[in-house]
């Protein structure tokens, strides 16, 4: 047991070393520049090697059930030093942030984009009750709790939110690290993108703000300050936005669109 755990630790150090040695890679695709950070390589390497077909011999020891559940259970604690860093980013710029404080609150409402854009697409694809769970938000713990309380996770709504949760967990960080620089190339200001990075998931926020930092290193302190202030605000207001704005809007749009369908 202890031996497996030491393999697990050695593996983590190895993955970090390999990912950092590959380093930041900038890949131009058409007019866009997609930046791949070491963190993207780290998540891809660990996911690909974790596929069932590789789980033989040595890899089976690294990817033992105990080790995987350890990683899942304590991921949040591994993440805590990152959260502890954000105070140092926000504190020196607190005045500036409070000055544009209302912009931070306004952009929280932008999280309704999940319903506004996601719901019509979901209905168009023929999803019905699954769409409720799948488009209420980005399917993090808050939405999972709300949907399971209201519909249970075995319901169709529950299946929808679980699917988004899984997809987000697997690909969320990669998605945001690619999508943030695309919006930057489309002309959105880096301050706005930094604020938007506080989507409510720690790993997605780090991925989004990290690629922005990699693209515009001279703005590092502003990017991190805005991203973390917005993340903190999302953890305060996120539940309220979901219950009092997203859910009623979704109900209204669902009724209107599904009726028009028949």
């Amino acid at each position: 047991m202890f031996k497996n755990f030491s393999y697990f630790l050695i593996f983590i150090f190895a993955v970090i070393t390999i990912s950092e040695m590959i380093g930041f890679q900038s890949i131009p695709i058409g007019p866009f520049n997609i930046g791949l950070l070491p963190l993207v390589f780290a998540i891809i390497i660990t996911m690909v090697l974790g596929l069932q077909i590789f789980r033989k011999g040595f890899w089976k020891k690294v990817y033992s059930d105990r080790n995987i559940s350890f990683a899942g259970k304590y991921l949040i604690f591994i993440m805590l030093p990152l959260m502890a860093r954000y105070g140092a980013d926000v504190a020196p710029q607190i005045r500036e942030i409070l000055q544009v404080g209302w912009v931070f609150i306004i952009q929280e409402i932008g999280n309704l984009g999940t319903v506004l854009i996601g719901l019509p697409i979901a209905l168009l694809l023929g999803l019905r009750r699954e769409a409720i769970g799948a488009t209420l938000g980005i399917g993090r713990e808050g939405e999972l709790a709300y949907i399971s309380e209201k519909y249970t996770l075995e319901s169709k709504e529950g299946r929808g939110v679980l699917s988004i949760y899984i997809i987000g967990t697997l690909f969320g960080a990669i998605f945001f690290s690619v999508f943030a620089p695309i919006l930057l190339d489309l002309g959105i200001r880096v301050e706005a993108l930094a604020m938007a990075s506080g989507v409510g998931s720690g790993s997605m926020m780090s991925a989004a703000s990290a690629t922005l930092v990699a693209r515009i290193p001279e703005m590092e302190s502003t990017i991190l300050a805005y991203a973390s202030a917005s993340q903190l605000l999302t953890s305060f207001l996120g539940t309220f936005t979901m219950v009092f704005l997203a859910a009623p809007l979704q109900r209204f749009m669902y009724k209107t669109l599904v009726r028009g369908d028949k």
């Binding site: 983590i12 993955v15 970090i16 990912s19 950092e20 950070l37 070491p38 963190l39 993207v40 780290a42 998540i43 891809i44 390497i45 660990t46 996911m47 974790g50 990683a71 304590y74 991921l75 591994i78 993440m79 990152l82 967990t169 960080a173 720690g202 790993s203 780090s206 991925a207 990290a210």
Partner: peptide
């Protein structure tokens, strides 16, 4: 960020 995403993966 790199160690966190390694753990997440």
């Amino acid at each position: 960020t790199t160690p966190i995403l390694t753990f997440a993966g």
